[in-house]
Design a protein around this nucleic acid. Structure first.
Length: 577
RNA sequence: CGGGGUAUAGCGCAGCCUGGUAGCGCAUCUGCUUUGGGAGCAGAGGGUCGUUGGUUCGAAUCCAGCUACCCCGACCA
């Protein structure tokens, strides 16, 4: 492609509404343009990258034996009523009516559609297992789209679904998909980790997420320095060192803490460690039908620890999603507001985190305005009803297995695999006959990759001061030829033209900067670096004086002179792999 | 959905407080010069100031509603 004929939509200024580096660079390099919140146009350069990533995903999926299909993005409500998700999904599901006033939605995922398809086509256990996948646009009406294509409302996803006659088969395919995902992210040259994950609203039990490591990631992932333990922080578990077990027990004392409410402020006032304070959080309960109630529940945590809301809301009787009680309600029921609460003489259901189980001589609120109790110990008047793990794991906790230390890093979720079990096949009555001629409900797995998100994730890991540094297998072009002074030098014009033609003949993805004298060399260099083309040839009268052209590698910046006679040989060697 | 903010030329912004002539940088177009790191000079084009209404002799500016977008928190590839 010749740049003079191409939409190279680079911008010099950093866009004001971009926060993270990949978003800034995707706008600056002219890969995407925003249409509306969470909706993006893919420009020619960006689409080439997206297509390259799709190609790798497709190759590896095909290699795994999965069959590619394409399902509609518009789905009718009936299917969603069958799975009971029409109501469950909430605002994320964009619903609308057709001309006959029938309910439809834009597909945020395709469990219902694929299950409907398979139940119509599959009749025998002999046809299983079967894996289907598609690479297609999804729409999720996100509350807050952000970070460009990283969290867009409309995005490209590779979603796959597998069907099985038994658990063993599901497990096998799950492991095979795990390996396929591993291969895909490996080929994309990403620094990634797989972690045990919460399956969330999609249902099912076993689940793993694949995260690209990046400081801008929205997720926190935890892994052990020894052994294989790795998990999303939402469900990560770890052990804390017990800090004051050897201390002799003292007598408790009520102290005035005035207007100090936060754990840090109280610790400072009393000159004690934050870890010796018990933090009391009050949340709403839930009745047997799952409706939020006004019954309040106290959650007890060590002062230096944070609540893991996901863990807490999974507990029996705790409102899900978790809802903190308002200050007014707490004051009404307990007699003092947030900031002076404690387990002593508190007439609520009290759930203690493991971190407070072994505390001695601790400080907690006295349930009276402006007062705390110091040197408290667990006793009849100050007790908890049950112990649970409701703590957010922290850096340097001890791993439960392997004896390692836990490390917390930020990640971008680019893949998620689930064992769904019979959730959808049961709801939609997707059965096949087993060897005994009996109808059995199929087991399912589902496997997603955020393809458009991968473009952004890759940039997060592959950039420098000057711009994007594409890995070769996803770069929009392999080679950029920059011609300088072509209007002055016949030789420059001829050599760059002939080299360009030769590259096309050889099947090399080549971009030629043939813009005229109005585009200065500086602009050409800066833009070639911004858009991150791996290899660059500069053809100018300066180097031609030595009968050579100049080659630069984008990643390590290493330059070399290549004699014009050796040029084609050089390119063949460089780019034929 | 709660809290905060923004809306003026293709992009980035000033002007608003204190009402009266539509402004800057980049980009674009023309000409000349320049040519190895986002060029210089001269000229030109381009805006119903998000939208609806109100106040006023007069509104980009003051007031109200609406809409869109962005940021911070709970959900997700």
């Amino acid at each position: 492609m010749r740049i003079s004929q191409y939409l190279l939509a680079t911008v010099k200024e950093t866009p004001a509404d971009a926060e993270i580096i990949s978003h800034k660079l995707m706008i600056r390099a002219g890969l995407v343009r925003k249409l509306a919140s969470g909706l993006y146009n893919w420009l020619p350069l960006g689409l080439k990258v997206l297509n390259n990533i799709e190609k790798i995903v497709r190759e590896e999926m095909n290699k795994s034996g999965a069959m590619e299909v394409l399902m509609p993005i518009v789905q009718h409500a009936e299917l969603w009523h069958e799975s009971d998700r029409w109501e469950q999904m909430g605002e994320e599901l964009l619903r609308f009516k057709d001309r006959h006033s029938r309910d439809f939605c834009l597909g945020p995922t395709h469990e219902e559609v694929i299950t409907d398809l398979v139940r119509g086509e599959y009749t025998s256990y002999k046809q299983l297992p079967a894996i289907f996948y598609q690479i297609q646009t999804k729409f999720r009406d996100e509350r807050r789209p952000r970070f460009g294509v990283m969290r867009a409302r409309e995005f490209i996803m590779k979603d796959a679904y597998s069907f099985h006659i038994n658990e063993e088969s599901l497990q096998n395919t799950y492991e095979q998909m795990y390996q396929t995902y591993y291969n895909i992210f490996q080929r994309l040259g990403l620094n990634f980790r797989s972690v045990v994950a919460d399956s969330g609203s999609i249902g099912g039990n076993t689940s793993h997420e694949f995260h690209v490591l990046a400081d801008s990631g929205e997720d926190e992932i935890v892994f052990s320095t020894k052994g294989d333990y790795a998990a999303n922080i939402e469900l990560a578990v770890g052990n804390l060192a017990i800090k004051n077990s050897s201390e002799a027990r003292k007598d408790s004392e009520i102290v005035n803490t005035g207007s100090e409410h936060s754990v840090e402020a109280v610790a400072g006032l009393l000159n004690i460690g934050v870890y010796k304070i018990i933090k009391t959080l009050i949340v709403h309960g839930e009745d047997e039908e799952g409706n939020i109630s006004d019954e309040l529940i106290a959650l007890l945590l060590r002062g230096d620890q944070e609540l893991n809301e996901i863990k807490a809301q999974k507990l029996q009787g705790v409102a899900s999603p978790l809802k903190f009680a308002s200050d007014e309600l707490i004051t009404k029921k307990i007699g003092c507001g947030v900031g002076c609460l404690g387990p002593s003489n508190l007439k609520l259901r009290k759930i203690a985190d493991h971190s407070v189980e072994n505390l001695f001589n601790f400080t907690c609120g006295a349930n009276q305005p402006g007062k705390h109790i110091t040197n408290m110990n667990w006793s009849e008047g100050c007790a908890y009803d049950e112990v649970a793990d409701i703590r957010k794991v922290q850096e340097n906790d001890y791993s439960l297995d392997g004896g390692g230390i836990l490390s917390v890093k930020r990640g971008i979720e680019v893949g998620h695999i689930f064992q769904l079990g019979k959730k959808y096949s049961d709801a939609l009555n997707a059965t096949v006959l087993d060897s005994g001629g009996k109808a059995v409900t199929m087991l399912m797995g589902c496997y997603g990759i955020g393809v458009s998100r991968l473009v952004a994730a890759s940039i997060e890991q592959n950039h420098d001061q000057k711009g994007i540094v594409w890995p070769e297998n996803i770069a929009p072009f392999q080679l950029i030829i920059v011609q300088i002074d072509a209007h002055k030098s016949r030789q420059v014009a001829d050599l760059s033209d002939s080299t360009y033609e030769k590259c096309i003949e050889m099947g090399i993805e080549v971009l030629m900067d043939d813009r005229d004298k109005k585009t200065s060399p500086g602009v050409k260099f800066a833009e070639s670096e911004l858009i991150g083309i791996p290899h660059r040839l500069v053809i100018s009268s300066r180097s031609l004086a030595e009968d050579a052209v100049e080659y630069t590698h984008r990643q390590h910046g290493e330059k070399q002179k290549v004699k014009t006679n050796d040029l084609i040989q050089f390119l063949v060697k460089l780019l034929s792999s």
